[in-house]
Amino acid sequence: MSLRPHIRFIVNPVSGPKSRVDVAARIQSLLNHEKFKHDIVYTTHAGHAPELARKAADKGYEIVVAVGGDGTVNEVAQGLLYSETALAILPKGSGNGLARHLKIPMGLDGALKALNRGQISTIDSGSINGHAFFTTAGIGFDAYISSVFAGNKKRGLQTYVELVMKEVLSYKHLPIKARINDNSFDTNCYVMAFANAAQYGNNAYIAPMADIQDGLLDVCLVRKLDLVKALHLSYCMITKQLANVDSAEYFKTTHVKVETEEPMMFHADGDYKGKATDFEVEMKPLSLKVLVP
């Protein structure tokens, strides 16, 4: 590494709750300029961040910082996969799943101070039908909620919870054929979540035992759900007890194949990706360098 590592900040100007905070000014004020040199670039459209991150990695930047929510983090991380450039995060979204898992402070000032003293580590990533994810991916109800949430003008945890409670009874489970650890089985599926990290975001823990460096997916299968079970599951997600409830089954694996008769929705890091009848989910061990406090 050079004497003064070069950092690129990639800012999504429309990410997260509206704020009057001048991100560039806070970076200028709080970044340790004796330790780092930096530049700031802004995304202008969906899919721009991977390009900006990839160019920075190709030019030898040591660190690229995603300034935004889970979607921005996902896009920046995509551009850095298998490179020597580390991802850092200034969380500015509504969920901030990867930032929370990595114990990055949620406030901009705290995250910048943590960046100044951060250390580089390496984590796993996952892939669902060719789409990279770093916290969770899933098929079924959580993907359906992602599709509805994406079209909602209001953001944040309250909006997400309201959508879940509104839609939980109308969404129906579907039959699937799954192959996990060389075992094939037919089952119902309300939701099948593939967890690299422990939580979706907002401290909602879908896989409390997940280790982001173990090379394994933590697969959570919920076959059927009613309102009582949904309320119980929601409580257990918030209290990190989901792995201990009867409604959810867990598997650890490196590769999952799922076939469905009817097209099912799927998401990657909360970003709705569409529908499919065939799903292939796999791990990419130790594929991303990250800066952690």
Score class of each variant (00 low, 15 high):
residue 162 E to F: 05
residue 211 D to Q: 11
residue 54 R to P: 01
residue 58 D to Q: 15
residue 255 H to D: 13
residue 161 V to M: 14
residue 289 K to D: 01
residue 158 Q to L: 08
residue 229 K to Q: 12
residue 181 N to H: 06
residue 41 V to A: 10
residue 183 N to Y: 05
residue 16 G to F: 06
residue 260 T to H: 00
residue 113 K to A: 11
residue 148 V to K: 15
residue 189 C to E: 06
residue 61 Y to M: 05
residue 290 V to E: 00
residue 216 L to F: 13
residue 272 Y to S: 13
residue 45 H to I: 05
residue 66 A to R: 05
residue 86 A to R: 13
residue 293 P to C: 04
residue 281 V to T: 06
residue 15 S to K: 05
residue 225 L to V: 09
residue 70 D to F: 08
residue 170 S to R: 14
residue 51 E to F: 12
residue 134 F to D: 03
residue 61 Y to H: 11
residue 24 A to S: 14
residue 272 Y to C: 11
residue 98 L to V: 04
residue 256 V to I: 15
residue 177 K to N: 10
residue 242 L to D: 00
residue 206 I to A: 06
residue 255 H to V: 00
residue 38 H to W: 11
residue 45 H to M: 09
residue 14 V to L: 08
residue 161 V to N: 08
residue 3 L to R: 11
residue 71 G to L: 01
residue 83 S to I: 10
residue 42 Y to A: 05
residue 174 L to M: 11
residue 222 V to A: 04
residue 135 T to N: 15
residue 212 I to Q: 03
residue 54 R to W: 03
residue 102 L to S: 01
residue 237 M to P: 06
residue 158 Q to W: 12
residue 85 T to F: 09
residue 112 L to S: 03
residue 104 I to L: 07
residue 87 L to H: 06
residue 105 P to W: 01
residue 264 M to P: 07
residue 34 E to V: 09
residue 225 L to R: 00
residue 152 N to S: 13
residue 151 G to W: 08
residue 246 D to V: 11
residue 250 Y to C: 12
residue 117 R to E: 03
residue 193 A to W: 04
residue 22 D to H: 10
residue 61 Y to C: 10
residue 203 N to Q: 12
residue 94 S to Q: 09
residue 78 Q to V: 09
residue 127 S to M: 12
residue 89 I to Y: 14
residue 138 G to D: 05
residue 290 V to A: 00
residue 154 K to T: 10
residue 273 K to F: 02
residue 78 Q to W: 10
residue 13 P to I: 01
residue 122 T to R: 04
residue 275 K to D: 07
residue 261 E to L: 04
residue 237 M to L: 15
residue 191 V to W: 00
residue 130 G to H: 07
residue 19 S to H: 11
residue 22 D to W: 04
residue 240 K to P: 10
residue 191 V to C: 00
residue 14 V to A: 11
residue 253 T to R: 14
residue 4 R to K: 15
residue 233 L to F: 06
residue 68 G to L: 09
residue 245 V to D: 15
residue 117 R to L: 04
residue 148 V to E: 07
residue 183 N to G: 00
residue 10 I to E: 07
residue 280 E to P: 03
residue 41 V to W: 07
residue 244 N to S: 15
residue 13 P to D: 01
residue 76 V to K: 12
residue 152 N to C: 09
residue 66 A to E: 00
residue 263 P to M: 06
residue 56 A to K: 05
residue 259 E to K: 14
residue 240 K to W: 12
residue 136 T to F: 05
residue 99 A to H: 04
residue 220 C to P: 03
residue 118 G to D: 08
residue 45 H to F: 11
residue 128 I to C: 15
residue 142 D to E: 12
residue 273 K to A: 09
residue 117 R to T: 07
residue 129 N to V: 13
residue 280 E to Q: 09
residue 3 L to N: 11
residue 39 D to K: 01
residue 142 D to S: 08
residue 65 V to K: 03
residue 37 K to R: 14
residue 134 F to A: 05
residue 95 G to D: 04
residue 142 D to I: 03
residue 112 L to T: 00
residue 12 N to T: 03
residue 34 E to C: 12
residue 289 K to G: 01
residue 277 T to R: 08
residue 270 G to S: 12
residue 259 E to F: 08
residue 210 A to R: 07
residue 41 V to N: 06
